[in-house]
Computed example of a mutant assay.
Amino acid sequence: MKNIYITTGTEHFLRQILNDHPSDNILLLQNYNQSLLLQESSDPTVFKEESTYHLLQNRGEIKGSGSVVFEYIMVRDEEIPLFLKLYQNLSVHFNETAGLQCIQLGQSLKNNKFIIIMFWDNASDYPLWKKTPHYQEIVKVMESNNTQIGFSHTDIYHFPEFTHDAK
C-alpha cells in the first residue's frame, strides 16, 4: 500500500530533511506563503509531523518542473462511492488534458478527506482546465445530486527554480 505524506515548514528546515534522505522519493514545493515536502512511499515516512493519504490512483509522470495543485475535498461516508465513481468517470479524460503531467488521488487515513494532486506544465494550465466541460461536469453532478461533496480548499505550489537558502 503506497501512501502520500505531506509536511510543511521553512525552506531551510525542509532542505535539511532532503539532504538527510537523498535516496527517498521526496519533492520540495513552494508558494508565496510556505514550502512543503511531498513523499510517496510504501514505507513509513521520514517526516516527524505529516498528513497521510492512501494513494488510490496515480496517472502520468512527474517532470520535476511546473506547478502543482492540491485540491482538498470533503466527502460524507455515504457519498464516498459517488465521489469515487465520479472521479473514475472523469479520469478517462486525463490523458487528453493539455499540460497535465500527472494526477494522483489520495484518501486521508484520519477522516473523509480526499486529495487530488495535479502536476501541470505551467501555472496557466490549471485555470484553463477548470473551464473545460469535464471539470464543469464535476460541479454539475455535485449540484444536481444536492451532494455535500465539496472542495474545501485548493493550494497551488511550484517547483523551486533556484536554491536561495542553501545554508
Rank of each mutant, 00 (worst) to 15 (best):
1 M>A: 09
6 I>N: 02
6 I>Q: 00
9 G>D: 10
10 T>V: 12
13 F>W: 13
13 F>L: 12
14 L>A: 06
16 Q>W: 06
17 I>K: 05
19 N>V: 11
20 D>T: 04
21 H>Q: 06
24 D>A: 15
25 N>G: 01
29 L>S: 07
30 Q>G: 05
37 L>K: 07
39 Q>R: 02
40 E>M: 06
43 D>R: 05
44 P>N: 12
45 T>N: 04
45 T>G: 01
49 E>K: 14
50 E>R: 07
57 Q>N: 03
59 R>N: 11
59 R>K: 14
61 E>W: 08
62 I>T: 02
67 S>E: 04
70 F>L: 08
71 E>L: 08
71 E>I: 05
71 E>M: 08
72 Y>I: 07
77 D>K: 13
80 I>M: 10
80 I>K: 13
81 P>Y: 14
81 P>W: 15
82 L>S: 06
86 L>P: 04
88 Q>V: 05
88 Q>G: 04
90 L>A: 13
93 H>S: 09
94 F>W: 06
95 N>S: 15
97 T>Y: 01
98 A>K: 11
98 A>H: 08
99 G>T: 15
99 G>S: 14
99 G>L: 11
103 I>P: 00
103 I>Y: 00
104 Q>G: 06
105 L>M: 08
105 L>N: 05
107 Q>R: 10
115 I>A: 07
118 M>Y: 04
119 F>W: 09
119 F>R: 00
120 W>N: 02
120 W>G: 01
121 D>L: 03
121 D>K: 06
123 A>D: 15
124 S>V: 15
125 D>S: 10
129 W>D: 04
130 K>M: 11
132 T>Y: 14
132 T>K: 11
133 P>D: 03
133 P>L: 03
134 H>R: 12
135 Y>V: 12
135 Y>K: 13
136 Q>G: 03
137 E>Y: 03
138 I>R: 02
140 K>S: 10
141 V>H: 07
141 V>M: 09
142 M>Q: 06
144 S>A: 10
146 N>W: 04
147 T>K: 10
149 I>P: 12
150 G>T: 12
150 G>W: 04
151 F>L: 04
154 T>I: 08
158 H>W: 00
158 H>V: 05
158 H>I: 11
160 P>L: 04
161 E>M: 13
163 T>G: 01
164 H>D: 13
